[in-house]
């Protein structure tokens, strides 16, 4: 069903009941969006005010002995330190991406619960390795 705009009068909270799905005016959602948006911006400003973002080491300085990868690539960096680069840098990330891309197909093939379990295991591995690298790597 396409969302089609109509010229209905605004004002009442519940304006239509279509089948079993009750409908409300978009403004109800917008109010919630604005409130959460302001809360999110508050968190962003709190982070900005509380945690200073340092500069890198100057290119002119004596070479740094330890250089950490950006945290988003922490999992890959953790694997690169242990396994061959082709495996850690290409095969595992591409296989993981392939699983994500084909998740709707997996849901049809093995069921929605198993699709969730597959996704959960994959996510936990990547998040776990990222945290492992951030705090121990």
């Amino acid at each position: 069903m396409d969302p089609v705009e109509t010229d209905r009068p605004q004002g009442s909270e519940k304006v239509e009941s279509s089948g079993h799905q009750e409908k409300v005016l978009l403004i109800e959602l917008q109010v919630r969006e604005y409130i959460s948006g302001f809360l999110w911006l508050g968190l962003l400003f709190a982070l900005t005010a509380g945690l200073k973002v340092s500069l890198d080491s100057s290119p002119e300085a004596t070479a740094v002995s330890v250089s950490k990868a950006p945290w988003v690539f922490g999992a890959i960096q953790w694997m690169l330190q242990r396994w061959p680069a082709w495996l850690s840098g290409w095969v595992i990330p591409l296989l993981s991406t392939a699983v994500l891309v084909t998740l709707p197909w997996w849901a049809r093939k093995v069921g929605k619960r198993w699709a969730w379990i597959i996704f959960l295991i994959l996510s936990l591995i990547w998040v776990g390795l990222t945290l492992l690298y951030m705090f121990t790597g």
């Binding site: 396409d2 969302p3 089609v4 705009e5 109509t6 209905r8 605004q10 519940k14 304006v15 239509e16 799905q21 009750e22 409908k23 409300v24 005016l25 978009l26 109800e28 959602l29 919630r32």
Partner: peptide, 19 residues
């Protein structure tokens, strides 16, 4: 009827459960 891009993005009504 408004089938424009904006009309699709911001319809006047949405499902109540989405709130």
């Amino acid at each position: 009827h408004n089938n424009s891009f904006t009309g699709h993005m911001r319809p006047r009504q949405i499902m109540a459960g989405a709130l």
